[in-house]
Each structure stands twice: as structure tokens, then as C-alpha cells.
Design a protein around this nucleic acid. Sequence first.
DNA 1: ATGAACTATGAACTTAGGTTTATAGCAACA
DNA 2: TGTTGCTATAAACCTAAGTTCATAGTTCAT
Lengths: 119, 119
Amino acid sequence: MKINDVSKLTGLPISTLRFYERKNLIPDIFVQRDANNYRIYSEEVVEYLNDVKALLFVEFSIEELSLLVNQQLHLTYEEKKKIVEQKIKEIEDIQKQLRKSKKFLKAILEGKVNFQTKC
Amino acid sequence: MKINDVSKLTGLPISTLRFYERKNLIPDIFVQRDANNYRIYSEEVVEYLNDVKALLFVEFSIEELSLLVNQQLHLTYEEKKKIVEQKIKEIEDIQKQLRKSKKFLKAILEGKVNFQTKC
DNA sequence: ATGAACTATGAACTTAGGTTTATAGCAACA
DNA sequence: TGTTGCTATAAACCTAAGTTCATAGTTCAT
């Protein structure tokens, strides 16, 4: 698969795919180069990138995620486990916040909240 | 209450409080000026800002939220209702994404996911 | 075999959401 | 009454996460 195919299958712009690679977010197992230096992606990269998208959307920064997936940095399993467990806790906090926000927004809909001067 | 009190009670830096005000995120009912041009906040601003914090954390941009709370823009109730309903839907999408991410992270912990070359 | 479409790179640019700095006017307390 | 601390503003600065641009090589369709 070439970069354009991956872009279409994941919905990520080509520029973003190249950017993620520069940020070490795409392990070598997913992408190699052909004779013309074109990127050739494995099929599995699509599922991987969909997970990455979800993780980056709310809970991870590129730097954090890169730390986790980048074997150059030689994090031990224990170190990675710690990061992941911490992240799961953070997600649970976000879930709590979201339930709170939803309540607040619903209260607005029902006219129970008003932060504006009446006039 | 002066700005330093609000900062301490909400955990928002003073610079952020001033910044939010410039972005029309703090309705006039919550803040007035005294004889020295110092900001004097009402007690209610603390709860309001805690809600704002939650909303900005994941689901709203400053601009969107300002649109909603800023009466200068004269949005009708119906227009605001539409924005809020849309936002609730988006939150539900985020909640779905988060459940997916959590699953993925737990699979990593259990060794069921591996995006790295074994060596 | 040539023009449109695809690929590559490095560098510059952009936007959101703040933070920091420079400068100056009040305040509070010994 | 002075000096430490709080407040104000405007403008400059910063970082993350991309995007766009300039330039150049490749490939595909006709």
C-alpha cells in the first residue's frame, strides 16, 4: 500500500501520516521503503492508525504515545505498563468530567442554568 | 473577591482568568470593576468557572463556548439549544471513543497487542 | 513520450490556547 | 514612608499539532 491508500483508508491526510512518522509514531514494522524511496505500508497499519487516532483524540499527546510505541527508547515492559495504567486512570477521570459536562449541558437545555443577564 | 482569590478557588492562573475574559468567556454578571479598575468577582464565578473548565477540557473550544455564553451575539434560545444538543452528541461520540481506547490499552496490558518488532 | 498525478524532503507557516514580559498604578504593613 | 505585594494593560512569546510551500524525482494513461 502506498501513502495515498493509507490516507484514504484511515482518513488521515498524507501530510499527517508523514508528520506522525517523523514523530516516531509509526513503528518500522508498518512501513518500509521501495526502490524509489516511496513508503510501502503493511495492511495492518490501518487498524493501528485507527487506534492511534482514538488515543490521540483525547488522552495522549503525540510525544507520550511515541514514547510508548518507540522501541528505540528501550522502555521496559514494567515502565510501559506504568504509563498505560496511569493513562487508563486519566481516561476514567475524563469520563467522569464528561458525565458532569453532559449534565450541565442538559440543565442548560431545560432552562435550569443561566449565566446571562436577563433583558 | 479579587482575581487572586478566584485563581486560588478555581485553580486557574490569573493570566488565564484575564485571557478568558478577553475571549468573552466570563459574562459581566460575574465580574465588575472597582474604583481602581480592579476586577471584583461575584461568589458564583467559582462554580461557573469550574463548569467552564470541564467544558473546555475536552468538548468545547474557547470560541464555541464564548459564542454560547456571550449575550452580545444575540443568539436565540433555539440557536443555543441546537449548539448544545449537537455538543451532547459529540460528547457521546467521545465517550464511545474513550471506551474503545480503554479497551485497547487494557489489551496492551494483557500482552494481547504488540506493535513492536520482537528482538 | 509527454502532461497529469503521485511521491519525496526540508523549511516555513498556521492556529489554539495560553504564558511571560515590560511598565505602571494601588495597597498594606512595619 | 518605603518596600513588598497585588492589580492593570498591551505586546511579545511559547508549544503542540499539524499544514503548506518549494523543489524535485517517478509513474501512469493516452
